[in-house]
Design a binder for these strands. Structure first.
Lengths: 341, 341
DNA sequence: GTGAAAGCGCTAACAG
DNA sequence: CTGTTAGCGCTTTCAC
């Protein structure tokens, strides 16, 4: 078994190998009864087309590439699983490639990936989805690509996205609705642009509620836990410290909580904290963090299906697809201390 | 460029394509000057052998499979990166396959993987590395495999491992050395056998120090944060609660810490907590958790190189390789409350 | 040591 | 709608 090749199937079904090929590739121009006969033969023989033979003859590799940065382990795994779920059933294999945004070698690594593996198409996940150099490279090589949650030059290629800005706006409004006026913000890593939109949402919410923006309440972070710790330290040292802190992701929000606890602050009574991502850490600290859940896995699936469609049709259809995020309110928020409100 | 094929190289070097093939495959029987000439031509033309052509002719796929469970996101990513780091330079691609230990379909999925992709070799990471059904399947199919941190039937196949038991013994002895006598233990998921060894280390340490084993101090967990919360709740409700809790992994240790905080206990003054894995969470909770760091990435690299060696030589060499773990002592431990010691 | 010929299993043009 | 004929680019025999 499993040694069956296309000739065996053709013989058993009483057709030519070309017809078998047509059935396997879902091409039209095969009469229904013929198709069924071939399919039966395939099933009986447990025939699986040899990928390398198909690749050699058709000049395709049946491999998709996923190039990703490291915005957090769970984010990466979610993306991977979403992509796998979509590409396996379609006969595509996935080649994963971790890449550093600032790594000068990324360009070389990508060339190697394309040249060596002859990837059929590429998925770019944040923050690499904003790495225009990489994108240009792929474009020049004529490799179809789909970007996940890009923030710049969005017209250039198909993409999927979520509404970071609006969700962030909503979350900030929740804090404002509770009575907070001095809300600190810890930004994400500057390279990670999608996270930058979260800052925009915060500012927009301030504006919408007539709260003046205060530069001293903003600290630049880098998406990591430690940046949250440091940022909180800075913010809490202000002459007039914030009554709430909005961290651009949950890792940093976790850092804020740790610092607050170390300083002996009670959360949420003395300080409200919110994050973004609905990462495991948001449920694991105490009190648990109010945050925003994104349909990461779904975005990855959609991105993959867009890429597969593009590979089939040959043309890049621009149907940007929006996967809305939603608020997850938990224990970490409360009205500001009465004296401050 | 990049369109160069073997004939181009042969022409430029003034040899036959067979000789080029020999050089590319590092075969013997090529005179040094000839080899150099060919290598020069390859470099000048930026020639890359087409994988599908090699695969078709040589009946290999140049793909390795990695089948893994979900013992934690960071664990998985570390393994992936270790494997990638090793196989890319050797011209192998990696096919990742997340699998559930209890999933009845795992067998089918693996068959598909083998049949469809014609994987050359497979790496099994915990807890799948103890999934004997999967292993039997691969063996029957004649697919070389290497297991990462297996605990049962270790003679059957090559493997890499770490000293879970000894490290766990050492950590338990640290607690005992501080004066603890009632030490709670929260076990890992029963399917995840490697984690089971950690329990053995704990028992061995008790024995070595003449402390009687008490069943009531042991709670069965499942490696997840929530199990740590629950387990701690149970242990702290005992008539005579433990003065220290050893969780079989850091996720659960994090849960223990959260429960302790919720109960108003101060750590480590009133309760010492230790975990295992040196996962990010061990640094992110407060106080940070004493734990054990394992060279996961290195294990993955070694496993991969063993597999590659096996593919080259054709025979499975049994040189089980041990990667020692090491203690990481942090804030979460102290002598027991004086009344209890 | 090196080369010539013969496929590997499939798809791409064409014919019919 | 179906079949025939050539390759795809490489590795294998097996000569030399």
């Amino acid at each position: 078994m499993s040694k069956a090749i296309i000739d065996d199937v053709a013989a058993r079904a009483g057709v030519s190998i070309k017809t078998v090929s047509r059935v396997v590739n879902r091409e039209p121009n095969v009469r229904q009864p013929t198709r069924e006969r071939v399919e039966a033969a395939i099933a009986e023989l447990n025939y699986r087309p040899r990928l390398s033979a198909r690749g050699l003859a058709g000049n395709r590799s049946f491999m998709l590439g996923l190039i990703y940065g490291k915005p957090g382990a769970h984010y990466v795994l979610d993306i991977q699983e979403g992509v796998l779920e979509m590409c396996r059933p379609h006969g595509y294999e996935l080649v994963i490639h971790p890449g550093e945004f600032r790594d000068g070698d990324l360009a070389n690594e990508i060339s190697d990936l394309i040249l060596d593996r002859r990837i059929d198409g590429v998925l770019l996940s944040p923050p690499i989805s904003d790495h225009m150099e990489a994108i240009a490279l792929l474009k020049d090589a004529g490799i179809p690509l789909v970007r996940i949650a890009p923030t710049i030059d969005k017209a250039a290629h198909p993409f999927v996205e979520t509404n970071d800005l609006d969700a962030s706006f909503d979350l900030a409004e929740v804090l404002i609705g509770l009575g907070h006026r001095r809300i600190g913000f810890i930004t994400g890593h500057p390279d990670h642009r999608a996270v930058g939109l979260r800052f925009e949402g915060y500012r927009k919410a301030l504006r919408a509620n007539g709260i003046p923006f205060q530069g001293e309440l903003v600290v630049v972070g880098d998406n990591r836990f430690h940046a949250g710790e440091e940022g909180a330290r800075q913010l809490l040292q202000l002459a007039s410290p914030p009554t709430a802190i909005f961290a651009a992701n949950d890792e940093m929000a976790g850092g804020v909580i740790k610092t607050a606890l170390v300083h002996g602050l009670r959360i949420p009574e003395q300080l409200s904290v919110v994050g973004f991502d609905d990462a495991p850490i948001s449920r694991q600290v105490w009190p648990s963090i109010s945050t925003i859940q994104q349909p990461i896995r779904d975005m990855a699936k959609t991105a993959t299906s867009i890429l597969l469609e593009q590979l089939r049709s040959g043309e890049a259809e621009q149907h940007p697809s929006m996967h809305p995020a939603r608020l997850v309110l938990r224990e970490s928020i409360a009205p500001p201390p009465s004296g401050k409100a």
